[in-house]
């Protein structure tokens, strides 16, 4: 990565699903309206300055104020309001029962992603990466573990805040396979600028395969290795969970499939052995203020072992 999560064309104007699609039309229509009104105002100013006396006299009366300043905006705004409210109702409708359920929790400064079963129990946990099948709505529950964050994946939908003490609901749907970037949109403190995530939309059968692999990874027993011993002894396990092991920390991201992820550090680094080493060893120089301490006191050998261990977590 280390490239923006979005590129040209602007994702707001390049929607990938039905919860973002209508807003493209809205954006163009509103921009068009803006351009027209601006032109009208410039034209009126020009007439006021240079126009023929008859025009100026007409523009210079109270009637023109009532027509251009009251009647015209009232009509345009009423139409916009009706359109806007209808669309609000449509986009805000909760997903039907039986839709895939996910909970995304904003934490300083990353996103915890939990896949839920229909009863709302957590069946798998991930970080900064949400896999969804294309062509079907996904119901996302938005929560916060600390301060207010906001979940925004502009290709798929508008944003919604993640507020402590509340659960907000958002529905997204991707109609095309791809990787869609997301960011935290509500200022949440020091590393707010480096809090990103990706949504990966698979074709439904591909998603099924991915899901199977993900479940298998969680279920596979992890053989004890020098790396795992170091992982627990150095304190990693105090904050991180690896499913099926005695590492059950809840503060940091779940690392069960960390090696399979596309990004590190909250959507900001590509995931390879080098970046992993750098992140584990000295994450503070990469993302200042993040909650993970530097592990530069480890021997090189030890760091290697830990990273080797992490690389087995697929």
């Amino acid at each position: 990565m280390t490239e923006a999560l979005f590129g040209w064309p602007p994702p707001v104007l390049d929607p990938m699903g039905p919860y973002a699609e209508p807003v493209r039309t809205v954006a163009w229509a509103l921009s068009g309206m803006g351009a027209l009104v601006t032109t009208l105002v410039v034209a009126a100013l020009f007439v006021a300055w240079r126009g023929p006396p008859v025009w100026r006299a007409r523009l210079g009366g109270q009637t023109s104020i009532l027509v251009f300043g009251v009647a015209l905006p009232a009509v345009v705004l009423a139409a916009l309001l009706i359109w806007g409210l209808m669309l609000t109702a449509k986009l805000d409708r909760p997903a039907a029962d039986g839709a895939m359920r996910v909970r995304v929790t904003g934490e300083m400064w990353w996103f915890r992603v939990q896949y839920l079963d229909p009863q709302g129990r957590v069946i798998a946990e991930d970080a900064n990466e949400l896999h969804i099948p294309t062509g079907q709505p996904v119901a996302i529950e938005l929560a916060s573990a600390d301060v207010i964050h906001s979940f925004w994946v502009p290709h798929l939908s508008g944003k919604k805040d993640m507020i402590p003490g509340r659960t907000n609901r958002l529905t997204v749907q991707a109609d095309r396979i791809g990787r869609y970037g997301g960011v935290c949109a509500e200022y949440c403190g020091r590393a707010h600028a480096l809090m990103g995530m990706v949504v990966i939309a698979h074709a439904p059968d591909e998603f099924g395969r991915w899901w199977g692999a993900r479940r298998a990874a969680a279920a596979t027993p992890k053989p004890d290795s020098a790396g795992f011993a170091l992982f627990t002894d150095s304190g990693c396990a105090a904050c991180h969970t690896v499913d099926g092991t005695r590492a059950v920390g809840r503060t940091g991201p779940n690392l069960t499939n960390v090696a399979a992820r596309q990004t590190l550090g909250g959507g900001i680094l590509p995931n390879n052995r080098g970046t992993m080493t750098g992140w584990v060893g000295h994450s503070q120089s990469i993302k200042p203020g993040n909650r993970m301490p530097n592990y530069d006191r480890l021997e090189p050998r030890q760091l290697q072992d830990i990273v080797t261990y992490l690389e087995t977590l697929k």
Binding site: T2, L269, P270, N272, G274, T275, T277, G278, G281, I286
Partner: peptide
């Protein structure tokens, strides 16, 4: 250098 992020270390 940007692709593999040497800068991480």
């Amino acid at each position: 250098i940007e692709r593999v992020q040497c800068g991480s270390c």
